[in-house]
Amino acid sequence: MAHPTIEKPQAAAAAEPSSGDWETAGKSGRGDLLRKVAVVLPIVSVVLFLLIWQVVGGHIDPILLATPVNVAKAFWDLLTSGELGPAFATAMGDLATGYLLAIVVGIAVGVLMGRSPIVERILNPYVNFFQATPLIALVPLVVIWFGVGFEARVAVTFMLALWSIIINTATGVKETPASLIDVGRVYKFSRWRVITGVSIPNAVPNIFAGLRIALGKALIGMVIAQMEISVTGLGGLIVNYGNAFKTAYLLAAVCTASLVGVIAAAILEVIRRFAFPWTQGEDLGRW
């Protein structure tokens, strides 16, 4: 999905490309072939899957399973009829609002928990409880509190995304190496600077790991909220076409929902690469 199969050589971060870049040095022969296979493999896999689906789907009642071709037709139909655009926009709006709120609150609470053992002790029971609870079960309560509009959908999205962000941020902040804190002390960093300049940067890789997990959960929250609370957006399309037994249209809406996820994940990845290029070392070990 959002993870490209091949990591580009990281020349961008290197100021001196001429100084014996080992990553480009070994780029020949067997490695080259492996790289090509790595590019082709996922494409082959997807094409094969679609073919099998098309063949199998052709022999099954279209209410039970639509063929890829019919799904594509339905997609085009939804797009041209002007139904898909607004649904997509509603989905993006709900997701972005709930998810961004969860990022802000999650990172702030996570940093507090990571820095202060007292705050950690106080909040840990709740964080662990909500992380382990199937929060979808709280949707009726959210409706009682927020009604059936935008606020309720945002609340569900927020509620699902929040906990992974808190937990990962707190872990990253808490696990700041003692020697880096010592560096801050030796060179007389203020308390505030130790947090913003040492602990939070140290947590960035963890924070992004949390954001990726939280994004998946936020998507689930957004779609469920649109299906169960407002019957609007992509979730609304899914419910309505499901009730009408129009399977191809239902699946077209589902695919659009995954597109929302892919786009959001791609944005996240782009931000990580450009704003935090130093986090890119992690994948160096994979051939």
Binding site: S179, V183, N202, V204
Partner: peptide, 10 residues
């Protein structure tokens, strides 16, 4: 000077 350099990775 720390035994393990202790540079900020970022």
């Amino acid at each position: 000077v720390f035994q393990d350099a202790a540079l900020m990775p970022w």
